[in-house]
């Protein structure tokens, strides 16, 4: 309850700044907490969250402290003083928490806190390969196990594509103007753009699962998005990102079924609940996929400035939508 009042207070404070932009903001923005269970561990994307928070300050009227508050334990007393907790699951040594931390997490969610589990979705075939974002539609097993102990009566449910979270502030996919490129410039290769618009990120959405507590979305998990948030001091995106695209071609349903292959297969849950079968060889990126409708498609990998810029623009818009949703709901 206390936290809920605190959230409302922060929200009002944030909205007040909307009307007083000319008045120098003497700091004091909303502080996002970031869990780092091992404070000495290397953060995979150290520029990510500060850059995203700065972008929100620049592009919206919300005011965030660009310096995340790192906590190493969920029993940290500051947990209940701040409404949003960000966890990059790949940055944690494991997701096994002692009883008191699990109870603290439950209390936090029940009292109005919002938890964002980045990399809380991770397709099994990725193994220890971090930094790959793949649209699976269920939380990773460690997350499932943890929340079965935290809130056993609840489960994660996929967020529908029309969920408010995906349109809190930004709607749809980035266009040339947002990307700061010339109007007639090709923002992506044709096949990539088509796949992105129709399947990968339709209307600027992505594979998210969420858990409601007391009727409120209190926790969301997504494939890793933080790699798309970082900017250097001149405003260039860091680090470079590549795309994995499913492509079809004539005869693939036959050819891929019979083509040489010496790896293993992995099942990944789709948005419709059915399973894709991913064909992957050890030490290499996945080769192709057999979809439940019998269609076979090949994975193609695209890299380059335009790919990276587009991916960053998408992930940062999505990230901003998540934090703003958390703030407003």
């Amino acid at each position: 309850m206390k936290l809920r009042f605190f959230v409302i207070f922060l929200l009002l404070a944030s909205l007040c700044s909307l009307w007083s932009k000319e008045v120098a903001v003497q700091g004091g923005g909303i502080r996002i907490m970031q869990l780092m269970r091992n404070q000495n561990a290397i953060k995979r994307y150290p520029d990510a969250l500060p850059s995203l928070l700065k972008m929100m300050n620049e592009q919206t009227f919300a005011r965030f402290d660009t310096d995340p508050l790192f906590i190493s334990s969920l029993t940290d007393e500051r947990l209940l003083e701040n409404p949003i907790l960000y966890v990059n699951c790949d940055d944690q040594p494991n997701l096994e928490f002692p009883q008191e931390e699990r109870e603290a997490l439950r209390r936090y969610m029940e009292q109005g806190g919002f938890v964002y589990l980045d990399a809380g979705i991770k397709a099994s075939f990725l193994g220890s390969d971090l930094g790959h974002s793949y649209a699976a539609w269920e939380e990773r097993p460690e997350v499932k196990e943890l929340f079965a102990q935290v809130i056993p009566e609840k489960t994660f449910i996929p967020l529908p594509r029309n969920h408010d979270l995906f349109r809190t502030f930004f709607k749809g996919l980035p266009k040339n103007e947002y990307l700061k490129i010339e109007e007639n410039q090709k923002r992506l290769p044709d096949t990539v753009l088509k796949f992105v618009e129709q399947e990968k990120w339709p209307q600027g959405t992505y594979s998210f699962v969420g858990m409601k507590v007391k009727g409120r979305l209190a926790c969301v998990a997504s494939p890793i998005c933080a790699m798309g948030w970082g900017k250097d001091e001149f405003g260039s995106w860091i680090p470079p990102i590549s795309f994995r695209i499913r492509e079809s071609a004539e005869n693939f349903d036959q050819n891929l079924k019979l083509a040489s292959f010496a790896g293993g297969t992995f099942e990944v849950t789709r948005e419709d609940g059915l399973k894709d079968v991913i064909y992957s060889e050890q030490g290499r990126r996945p080769l192709w996929v057999q979809e439940p409708n019998g269609r076979w498609r090949i994975f193609k990998y695209y890299s380059g400035e335009e790919i990276s810029n587009y991916a960053h623009a998408f992930y940062s818009r999505l990230g901003m939508n998540v934090f703003l949703y958390a703030l407003l709901n």
């Binding site: 492509e247 071609a249 004539e250 005869n251 019979l258 083509a259 090949i298």
Partner: peptide, 30 residues
């Protein structure tokens, strides 16, 4: 049964000379 790698490549090589663009594109992707 799947073909060997050499067979797959050879088949793709033939497809690259196919009259249909779609077949050639598929071969190049594979």
């Amino acid at each position: 049964s799947r073909s060997t790698q050499s067979q797959t490549i050879m088949r793709a090589g033939k497809d690259l000379r196919h009259a249909e663009v779609g077949r050639r594109v598929g071969a190049a992707k594979l």
